[in-house]
Simulated scan of single mutants.
Amino acid sequence: MNTNATKKEVLEAYHFRHAAKAFDPTRKISEEDFRFILETGRLSPSSNGLEAWKFLVVQNPELREELRPFAYGAYNQLPTASHMVVILARKGLIPESPYIYEQLTKVKKYPAEMVRNNVGAWHDFFDSFHLDNERARTAWASKQTYIALGNMMTSAAMIGIDSCPIEGFVPDRVNEILAQRGLLGDDEYEVSVMVAFGYRAKEPRDKTRRTMEQVSEWIL
């Protein structure tokens, strides 16, 4: 592997990436390319490997239009993006939850007896991070979704596809709309963040950032 060439390609992707406020509605991402983007989200790391997320790929025009009044940060992206993803965070995570047991035994292939015997350690972990109520636990799960979000945006940029992360929405109304369509399971999920993908409608201004010295400090 030519590591210098790889580093150059990665930095070029970061310079290419910007938060596209509107997309060219005539250009669509191929299924192969979008499945690649989703795969980088699926393969993203998560705390304790719980993968406490779900990716809703919202291609239905009626649903997009229904969400639009309550997603002011996506007002221009919803009608123009090739692909719109609503990233959900899992609720109700407690040491004894069936989801954690299933994830550890069926996905991560840990012995069932070991998982049952480690419930006390899970309680210690939850206590150490003050995950003592549903709001705190859902917020913890929501933080994990941003790892997948960042990886999907980077992988998109690597293949010349634009994106825009979106937090500008009314969570209660978005959750209500998704719940009415049965997209939150049995009250298992809530919206965490959105991200739009497509091809830019116009070229952005040059990227600006604070200097490395301003944003980093070495402790030797």
Rank of each mutant, 00 (worst) to 15 (best):
K109M: 10
P111A: 02
P111Y: 00
E113P: 00
E113Y: 04
E113M: 07
M114C: 04
V115K: 08
V115F: 09
R116M: 14
R116D: 15
R116A: 13
N117P: 09
V119A: 04
V119H: 11
G120C: 00
A121Q: 13
W122A: 11
H123M: 08
D124W: 04
D124Y: 08
F125C: 03
F125Q: 11
D127L: 10
D127N: 12
D127S: 12
F129E: 06
F129D: 09
F129P: 07
L131A: 02
L131K: 10
L131T: 06
N133M: 12
E134R: 04
R135K: 14
A136D: 15
A136F: 10
R137Y: 03
T138I: 01
T138W: 08
A139G: 15
W140I: 10
W140E: 11
A141Y: 00
S142P: 13
K143F: 04
K143R: 14
T145R: 01
I147V: 14
I147A: 09
I147N: 07
A148I: 07
A148G: 10
A148N: 01
L149C: 12
L149A: 05
L149M: 11
G150C: 08
M152A: 07
M153F: 01
T154V: 07
S155W: 04
A156F: 01
A157Y: 02
A157F: 06
A157Q: 09
A157H: 10
A157D: 03
M158H: 09
I161F: 03
I161D: 02
D162G: 10
S163K: 04
C164E: 06
P165K: 02
P165W: 01
P165V: 10
E167V: 12
G168F: 05
F169Y: 14
P171C: 09
D172Y: 02
D172P: 05
R173F: 06
V174D: 02
E176H: 02
E176V: 00
E176L: 01
I177T: 03
I177W: 07
I177Y: 05
I177F: 08
L178N: 11
L178Q: 12
L178D: 09
L178G: 08
A179H: 11
A179N: 00
A179G: 02
Q180G: 15
G182A: 06
G185F: 08
D186Y: 14
D186L: 08
D187P: 03
D187Q: 15
E188C: 07
E188W: 10
Y189E: 00
E190D: 14
E190P: 02
V191N: 00
S192M: 05
S192E: 06
S192G: 14
M194A: 10
M194P: 11
M194N: 04
V195T: 13
A196R: 12
A196E: 05
A196F: 01
A196Q: 11
